[in-house]
Structures are given as structure tokens and as C-alpha cells.
Computed example of a mutant assay.
Amino acid sequence: MDWLTIALLLLFGLAFLAAEVIFIPGTTVVGLVGFGLLAAGIWFGYRDLGSATGHVLLGGSLVVTGLLVYLGLRPKNLNRVALTQVNHARVHDVRHPDVPPGTTGRALSALRPAGTVLFQEDRREVTTRGEFVSAGAEVRVLSIEQNRIVVEQVHG
């Protein structure tokens, strides 16, 4: 095999290793392909160009690979792919209802026995104890049972 083919094997092997370490860490396949190309280039260098040239190719490849790993594992480069942001969002806890008993609202849909009620600016799915409440009627929260807001129509 001529020296140009061996040089291209080494060049592409180093390029794949650089892509694995610096740009897309954790994919493994790209790194294995790069390592395979690098090993093939060194092996062909020993076989076709002699042991002195093979030693030079091996040493040079080790130095460049070590430099790539060093550059890829620097904290600045790791921070680009590591999760560094903290999520401070919260989930609404149904054990602490935001519509306490006694709150009044207006039925947006007919409650048969379930439907939608508007409490100030908040729309909530509610249920009655079985009675029918027409749309537009004023309702009051009786209780919170498990995940359900139980209401009754306000007469008056």
C-alpha cells in the first residue's frame, strides 16, 4: 500500500477520534471507526513502509490522540455537553387546592354532574353531587375530594 493511502487512513482515523472526543462524545461508533482506521493505518505503515516509519507513525498518532483527549476532556468542553442547568419548576400539588371550599364561581358549561367553572380567571373541571346545574349559574365549592372539586349551585 502506498504512503498516501496510509496517510489518509491515519488522517481520517484522527478526524473520527476528534469528532468523537470533542464534538459528539458518547456515540462510541464514531470513536471505534476512528480507532479502527488509525490502527489499520499504523499496521499498514509497519508492513509496507518499514519499522522505523511505523514507529514514527505510532508515536505521532499517540501524541495527537492524547492531545485530542486532553482537549476534549477539558471542563470548558465538557460543559457544552453536560447538563448544567437546574430546573426549578414545580408541579401543582393537588393536596393543596388553589380553589378552597367556599369559593364561588360561574359555570361555563352545564354541570351534568361534571363540567367547567370559572373561578376568577381560572377554569377548573368540577363535579356536583349529582344535581344538574345550568351554564351561567353561580356555584360554590363544597369540598375537594381526592382530585375532584365538588360544587353546588348558589340559590338566592
Rank of each mutant, 00 (worst) to 15 (best):
G115H: 10
V126Q: 11
V63C: 11
T116P: 00
G115T: 12
Q85K: 14
G59L: 15
N77M: 09
T84G: 10
Q120A: 13
G72W: 07
L108F: 03
L49D: 00
R90M: 12
A52K: 03
A52R: 02
A110T: 13
P101M: 08
E121T: 06
L83F: 08
R74I: 10
Q85H: 04
N79C: 06
G50I: 06
P113W: 04
R90I: 15
A82D: 05
T104H: 03
E125V: 10
V117M: 07
L58F: 15
R47L: 15
G105R: 02
H55I: 15
R80W: 11
G130P: 05
D98R: 06
G50M: 02
G105W: 03
T127G: 06
R112F: 07
H92R: 11
N87V: 13
P75H: 06
Q120M: 07
Y46C: 09
T53D: 06
G59E: 02
L58K: 04
A110S: 10
A89L: 11
N79P: 01
G105S: 01
H88N: 07
G105D: 09
G45A: 06
V81K: 08
A107I: 06
V81C: 02
V91Q: 02
L71W: 13
P75F: 08
G60H: 03
E121F: 04
F132S: 11
A89S: 12
G130E: 04
D122P: 00
T84A: 08
R74C: 08
V56S: 02
F44I: 07
G115F: 08
G66Q: 10
A114V: 08
L68F: 14
V91D: 01
E131M: 06
T84N: 04
R112Y: 10
T127D: 08
H96L: 15
W43A: 08
L73N: 07
D93M: 10
L111T: 05
V94M: 11
L68V: 15
G102D: 01
E131T: 14
A82F: 10
Y46N: 03
N79K: 12
R47V: 15
P113I: 12
R47G: 07
L71K: 05
Y70S: 03
S134A: 15
H92V: 15
S109L: 11
A89R: 09
V69Q: 06
R106C: 09
N77G: 03
A114P: 03
T104W: 00
F119L: 11
E121R: 07
T65L: 08
L71F: 14
N79Q: 14
D48R: 00
P97L: 12
A135E: 14
T104R: 12
S134K: 14
L62V: 13
T84M: 06
G105E: 05
D98N: 01
D93Q: 05
T84V: 13
R95D: 10
R123E: 13
T127R: 06
L57Y: 12
E125D: 09
L58A: 15
